[in-house]
Design a protein around this nucleic acid. Structure first.
Length: 655
RNA sequence: GAGGGGGUAGCUCAGGUGGUAGAGCAACGGAUUUUUAAUCCGUUGGUCGGGGGUUCGAGUCCCCCCCUCCUCACCA
């Protein structure tokens, strides 16, 4: 013990005199590394604590702590004495500083601002230049003296291999691919080569003009005769071989992902082609692309929860659209017979591998057509896109093959239910049993909800290859015509692939009287459902009076076909009572949001839409396709986040 | 909302039972005139997600919080 303690004392004395003797910033850095550095003497000393006898460790440990503080103090003292411009740079700052130095070095020769480049015209894509290299036969020795023409490219430096001070190989990449560039003193002025050797970093953007020739190893290479820095990269790039794998970083900083991961870049290029392919396909069939409002006062066309926003100029609340259906149908009324809209819609709901709050759909409507036209259209469209973008009609999703080739089988909704769940759609007790088997509670669910729940749990997982599910119960489809041969069924299909719904189509309901009935029924159902939820909310205590009032209202809503919330003073009184009680509930935000929707009846019955139908909407086929999901299938991406450039991410909190 | 995996150098990752954080790549210095994830020699670089606790000593043990991925739930 004595010896360890003595050693510590001696080290402190030694460090004090060493730091005291420092006369320059360089010396200080040396002494700092000697004592405080990673392999410095202080580390060695601290390591000895563990070697000391167990009973001595407390004393020795405490002394080592003092020593560390003392030496750190010596360093700071010396630093202050020299006034050497603040603490040493560390980590990413040091790397950035190195690059700044190189930037200055380059600009010292080429002038201020030269590191940020300018127009560099008459470029070839790397992909095009590579085509100028004749393919080499197996084992064939390339003629490295033969020039195969010239090339001019702009690209990012991905790899750098210095063979010597006279020859440097770079691997550079542009959007189309990678190519080797050689900087050689026999092709490039010595001064240029020297400057670049000392100032060129990975991920810098450069412009190169030169001769095309194989190397002796047969690598297609652009031998630079002129080279310019087009943009300096100041931030340190990710690891050159493994690239960027951390998903969070990839989503938050997509630009890094696109540079580092060619597969990711390829997926988004494919997505762009897919979107333009959809447009071309529809345009070629005479559809016109329309642009309808994103901001709406009544978010209709679906039952999803909307995002709410506020328009200052008019002092009104507005909503982001949850579908494009309603305005497009008004265009059918207006005499535009084949219309579509491809764009973003917004739903204030969950996030998982196949859901993002904002996503892209294409909705299309064709007058005087029906479901059958929509079927032909979507199966041709999707198999056409698959063939064009992947070369085939069978894709791989989550490790399993998925067939997208037309024609897709037509599967009856109720038959699927019976086949996979073993119950009939009319068998309420059976449905309840299946819901309980899945660990859910069927109480409070409407018949439609029950059927939907069982179908989702038992049938959807089996819908791997692209298929049409048809003949849904009509209650599930409020905007859809009844089936011409069976009024209980909807003239509707949902297209599934890989267990995801990728399209949904109707023979559109154009009877304004029937439409009003359906919307009213849906509205009453929503009211009743909300009231029942309030009654069932676990942990919520509501007074006996209120309970009776709510139960009464539910009865009234469910049994009177023409019930309207407007003017029902009982309903408003109940809402106010609920409002005061809900304030302390755990899920109060959820309930307040639902209450707000219920307070404005126009949110549930879109009178303007019904009025439009009364002017005559032609019978029509209509369809919505989930572009993101189709894109997942065609690019083979397992998550919707891999096909959305900037998926939703919780903001990072800085501590 | 529930369960599980993860957060360590700029990047990719190691770190039995607490002993004072390592490697590869990148960076810096040097060698190298046809390499290709170039190679060889040397060097620097870390509030180990954040906060608190136990301890002489915490990446490691305990508590709280944050972010993320996966599965499930929710979701026309």
């Amino acid at each position: 013990m004595a010896s360890v303690l003595e050693a510590l004392e001696a080290l402190e004395a030694e460090a004090r005199s060493a730091f005291a003797a420092v006369r320059s910033a360089e010396d200080l850095e040396k002494v700092r590394i000697e004592y405080l550095g990673k392999k410095g003497k202080l580390k060695d000393a601290k390591a000895q604590v563990g070697q000391a006898a167990a009973e001595d460790r407390p004393k020795v440990g405490a002394r080592a702590k003092e020593l560390e503080a003392a030496v750190q103090g010596c360093f700071e003292e010396a630093q202050a004495r020299l006034a050497s411009g603040g603490p040493a740079l560390s980590g990413v700052e040091a790397l950035r500083d190195e690059r700044l130095q190189k930037l200055k070095k380059y600009e010292a020769v080429h002038g201020a601002g030269s590191a940020w480049g300018a127009r560099f015209a008459n470029l070839s894509a790397i992909e095009e230049l590579r085509k100028k290299f004749p393919p080499l036969a197996e084992g064939q020795q390339p003629d490295s003296n033969q020039t195969l023409g010239t090339g001019r490219i702009a690209a990012r430096v991905m790899l750098r291999r210095d063979q010597s001070k006279k020859l440097i190989f770079l691997t550079v990449a542009d959007q189309s691919g990678e190519l080797q560039v050689a900087l050689w003193n026999k092709k490039l002025p010595e001064a240029t080569l020297d400057l670049l050797r000392e100032s060129l970093d990975l991920w810098d953007l450069i412009g190169v003009e030169g001769e095309l020739a194989y190397t002796q190893r047969g690598e297609p290479t652009l031998w630079a005769t002129e080279i310019k820095l087009l943009t300096k990269c100041l931030a340190p790039p990710p690891e050159k071989h493994h690239g960027l794998t951390d998903k969070e970083t990839r989503y938050r900083h997509r630009h890094l992902d696109l540079i580092s991961n060619p597969d990711s870049r390829k997926a988004f290029i494919t997505r762009a082609k897919l979107v333009s392919g959809v447009r071309r396909f529809l345009d070629d069939q005479g559809f016109l692309e329309m642009e309808t409002p994103v901001l709406q006062t009544i978010p209709g066309g679906a039952a999803a929860r909307p995002f709410k926003t506020h328009l200052n100029a008019l002092g009104i609340d507005m909503f982001m659209r949850i579908a494009t259906e309603i305005p497009l149908k008004k265009l059918l009324v207006g005499g535009l017979d084949k219309v579509y809209e491809l764009g973003r819609i917004f739903r204030n709901e969950g996030v998982d591998y196949s859901h993002n709050p904002e996503f892209t759909t294409v909705e299309l409507y064709q007058a005087y057509a029906d479901l059958r036209d929509m079927m032909a259209l979507v199966e041709n469209l999707v198999s056409h896109l698959a063939r064009e973008l992947t070369g085939g009609t069978t894709v791989t999703f989550r490790g399993k093959p998925v067939k997208l080739g037309a024609p897709w089988p037509r599967l009856d909704y109720c038959e699927l239910l019976e086949k996979h769940a073993g119950v009939k759609a009319t068998d309420e007790a059976g449905l309840d049993r299946k819901i309980r088997e899945a660990g859910e509670n069927p109480e409070g669910l409407s018949m439609v909800d029950k059927i939907d729940s069982v179908f989702g749990t038992y049938a959807e997982p089996h819908l791997t290859d692209a298929c049409f599910v048809i003949n849904q119960p009509v209650e599930m489809s409020p905007l859809c015509k009844a089936h011409p041969e069976d009024a209980a069924k909807a003239h509707r299909f949902e297209a599934f692939a890989a267990s995801m719904e990728i399209a949904n189509a109707y023979s559109e309901l154009n009877d304004p009287l029937e439409q009003r009935k359906r919307l009213a029924a849906q509205m009453r159902e929503t009211w009743a459902k909300f009231m029942r939820e309030v009654l069932d909310e676990p942990g919520a205590s509501i007074g006996a009076d209120l309970k009776i009032g709510i139960e009464g209202l539910v009865q009234r809503v469910e049994h009177s076909a023409d019930w309207q919330p407007t003017g029902d003073s009982d309903a408003n009184r109940l809402l106010r009572s609920i409002e005061t009680q809900v304030k302390t509930w755990k899920r109060k935000d959820y309930f307040f949001e639902r209450m707000q929707r219920l307070e404005d009846p126009s949110l549930l019955i879109d009178e303007d839409f019904l009025h439009a139908l009364e002017h005559g909407m032609p019978p029509a086929g209509g369809m919505g396709i989930g572009i993101d999901r189709v894109c997942m299938l065609i690019t083979g991406c397992d998550s919707i986040r891999d096909v959305i450039l900037f998926p939703l991410m919780r903001p990072e909190k800085n501590a």
